[in-house]
Amino acid sequence: MVLAIGFEGSANKLGVGIVRDGQIIANCRRTYITPPGQGFLPRETAEHHQQKVHEVLKEALDQSGITPDQIDVICYTKGPGMGAPLMVCAIVARTLSLMWKKPLLGINHCIGHIEMGRLITNAYNPTVLYVSGGNTQIIAYDRRRYRIFGETIDIAVGNCLDRFARVLKLSNEPSPGYNIEQAAKRGKKYLPLPYCVKGMDVSFSGILSLMETKIDELLKTYTPDDLCYSLQETVFAMLVEITERAMAHCGSDEVLIVGGVGCNVRLQEMMGVMCKERDARVFATDERFCIDNGVMIAWAGALAYSSGTRMDFSESYITQRYRTDDVEVTWRD
């Protein structure tokens, strides 16, 4: 019986979530949205989180109907992520820990995504494709670690999509990736783009520089919709291919897609076709759980806390670089 509250703010989403024994009783979020053509910068993002954190926390407590004294553990994102926004949530969590006299636990953001996905979909031991603005990794569990089998060797797939949206000046509302997905549905003409798979690793920077440098020329023959379509078809094919390689390598018959890009329906569809061909199953979640949220931090924290993980107040720092395979998974066999 663990009741955990989680604070997430590693990028432009601020989330507070509350979990009681695997039941989600609050999942509240605000997103810092920048004008078209602009990305989010650390200082402005941190200011956004500072301004919103009180109202989001209050909303989460109201939604769950609990009082602070019922909480067992306060969890926050320790990393990876942008320093300044991470720090906002860490400070809030530390303050509450002292005010409410509750234990504190710092959580790896990537582990949060994986455990959230497993909770929602009931996938048992999946090969995990973790795709977001900052991460692109193929992960499988082996002997107490989530091991990284493949990853991007330069930029993350979500970063490639976001920056391409900026090239086209697409809106960042509700998210650049969502707007690319909608535009891609109207695209018809396929433009061949660099396809770069190295073993189980991928590279996206070549595609992005091609788009950035040639955009004016490309727009003479292709519509923005065509370009969104071609971009999605190419980068998702690369992701599905390395996922299949990892599955063959590990002998796995389940795939779980997590992270913000994971709610893209076209990616889920392509993954489904691949899985059908090899009698495997694909698991994915929608934007409530795929996109960064507080619940994932609360749930991963609840798992770690139940299996005996503790953190001293003096260790409650943040780190921008915190790899998925750095965490010892104490809650799985």
Binding site: G81, G133, G134, E151, I153, D154, A156, Q320, Y322, R323
Partner: peptide, 13 residues
Amino acid sequence: EVRARGRKRTMVG
């Protein structure tokens, strides 16, 4: 250098 690029990637978000 390639290895350092991988390990130092900040992995935001």
